[in-house]
Write a protein that binds this DNA or RNA. Sequence first.
DNA 1: GATGGTGGTTGACGTGGATCAACGTATGTT
DNA 2: AACATACGTTGATCCACGTCAACCACCATC
Lengths: 247, 247
Amino acid sequence: MQMKAAVPITAADLKSACSQCNLLELCLPFGMTETEISRLDELVGNRRKIKRHQPLYRTGEAFEAIYAIRTGSFKTDVLLEDGREQVTGFQMTGEILGLDGISTEFHSCNAVALEDSEVCVIAYDKLETLSREMEGLQHQFHKVMSREIVRDHGVMMLLGSMRAEERLAAFLLNLSQRFTARGFSAAEFHLRMTRDEIGSYLGLKLETVSRAFSKFQDEGLIAVQQKHIRILNIAGLRKLVHHPAIR
Amino acid sequence: MQMKAAVPITAADLKSACSQCNLLELCLPFGMTETEISRLDELVGNRRKIKRHQPLYRTGEAFEAIYAIRTGSFKTDVLLEDGREQVTGFQMTGEILGLDGISTEFHSCNAVALEDSEVCVIAYDKLETLSREMEGLQHQFHKVMSREIVRDHGVMMLLGSMRAEERLAAFLLNLSQRFTARGFSAAEFHLRMTRDEIGSYLGLKLETVSRAFSKFQDEGLIAVQQKHIRILNIAGLRKLVHHPAIR
DNA sequence: GATGGTGGTTGACGTGGATCAACGTATGTT
DNA sequence: AACATACGTTGATCCACGTCAACCACCATC
């Protein structure tokens, strides 16, 4: 253990602190005061790098921490014993992983990196302790959990009530909106997941996803080249979601 | 306002208190100490009766409280502008409603009573205040939220990866298990929702639900008479979920 | 710059569940 | 008791998506 008081603050320390993180408005600290945020730095202890295709955590593992994505992206999925996979979400920078584990103190899904990624490890017991002292943290954390529940309801809507092309259009619009929030282009982005993973998430087969992409391209809504997507007609995509074709 | 100290505790007071409630092990207070629970009684202020088919809250309404079901049952649903409905859940006694509202401070779904029901109103600001003082309450509340997330993932699995009969079998098993937890028969129960609502929840049309019920009956798995269900072969139903037919 | 592997596209065909329609059966109202 | 209305069942037909299969485009690695 190092004596903290004895060492000067290094560039690495600064970078790791919530107060210095450029993801502030997207992550757990959103809406908290500066003094509150400076206290968070003690909460977010270490970080962890995860290589592409490696798990951050697995179903059945003991739950100890939640994770904030600093760089990269992840998918979460649930496996059925017969091998069927259901992707339950795709997460990007600033989003929180691991909330599923609180309920039973064991993780109930797998979180796998879609590219080389880095997460901030937030020890859960520390989070509970600190959020008893900090109203802002408590409130933000509750909002994060609630947001996840609302998002899940949206996915249920998608899976339960929409047809293939509506689902894919909604998916693209959602991605676009999240990229925008992160300062990236709303119209042009790179998919980090395969057609198969998109299909699993949307309750479709990869061939159906591929065909829908092609159809959107033929209709001039998007330009697809493998994982590279350019949205050409965002209003057209929106219309697809809200007025599902003619039927 | 009445002077509390001046009036003796009435039977009604006793009945309303968490400490006197027989739903203890199913509801928010689960796992808390007796002294903690006695403090909860100040949290759960009033109760509200909701008639069958009446909403407890609606999409867009300001969020102020969460609700614990004392008697009866509810459905939650999301409506699309074109009229399509997605039922996102069915809730029974002891379960918590309204968590969707924390995220934006407005409700993002409708909660509708499936029968005449009663809920305990838990003011959200009071809950946050009290759970900063009570570790047990805080922890339990987090578990309740996390459990909802895990449940939602299960529904995604259902909607995204299972076929019609698997979905219905999983649904029946889930109901049976929840009735058991409440001291009711695992094998015989009354559905409070229509075929259409089950269908919406499971991403199926009511005709498909009806046909699946009939098929299960023909196969001797259950006995159906309208809303009355008797499970005759629970192992058979389980097998249906885990080994989806022969294919 | 060959080679192998993974991921993506496209076509032909099959099928599970939706749709449309007719008819039963409870439940509640006057 | 008669009637209306909502809910449930069942059959016939259709179609959106799944399945199966062939081929193509990347990109690693040697």
